[in-house]
């Protein structure tokens, strides 16, 4: 019981920190009234919603706050990847030459959040849409399929995203 209530306090604290950061950014003022109102409001919202942000069974996760420098690197890599594949899709649309197939592959990531982020990044990259994610098994619709071999398709679609994500979230 004691461990559970301690973990609950930690979860409320981390949710409050994230919410307070958002408050500071969006109000943009540092007067005493604004700061204290923000603290009260974010604590109130955190008490209601901490269970949605950090689930109870995720106690084994090491980094509750992500590693910022790898996070920025990941975002930049995702942006570059998005623009590159956008141009590829553009050329496909102009030539009218597409070869859409559905491919299946697996991922090495363990935590739920990392898997969801990987599926989201795959959908965000033009040319691929994640249709289904069950445990570590991904089904992806690929606009211009180079191969149907499961492992090779995984390497081509995921690129460096998987290794970077495993560093961002630990």
């Amino acid at each position: 019981m004691r461990v559970r209530s301690k973990w609950k306090l930690v979860r409320i604290l981390f949710t409050t920190i994230w919410l307070y950061g958002g408050w500071l950014l969006y109000t943009g003022s540092f007067e005493a009234i604004s700061l204290s109102l923000g603290a009260i409001a974010s604590l109130f919202v955190a008490i209601i919603t901490y269970d949605l942000f950090i689930a109870e069974y995720e106690a084994a996760r090491k980094g509750l706050l992500v590693r910022i420098h790898y996070g920025i690197l990941y975002l930049l890599y995702l942006l570059a990847q998005m623009y590159l594949s956008s141009f590829a899709v553009l050329i496909n649309i102009l030539r009218g030459n597409i070869n859409p197939r559905v491919v299946h592959f697996r991922t090495r990531l363990h935590s739920d959040l990392a898997r969801v982020l990987l599926a989201t990044s795959i959908t965000l990259t033009p040319g691929t849409i994640a249709l289904e994610l069950q445990e570590d098994h991904l089904i992806v619709h690929w606009l211009d399929a180079k191969t149907l071999h499961s492992k090779y398709a995984g390497i081509l679609i995921k690129g460096k995203m998987e290794t970077l994500l495993s560093r961002v979230l630990l």
């Binding site: 942006l79 998005m82 623009y83 899709v89 649309i93 597409i98 859409p100 959908t123 033009p126 849409i129």
Partner: peptide, 16 residues
């Protein structure tokens, strides 16, 4: 599926 690829993903890049 292919229409979704064209619309959603390309306009995502446009908005970004």
């Amino acid at each position: 599926y292919t229409r979704l690829q064209a619309s959603s993903t390309c306009s995502t890049t446009a908005v970004i």
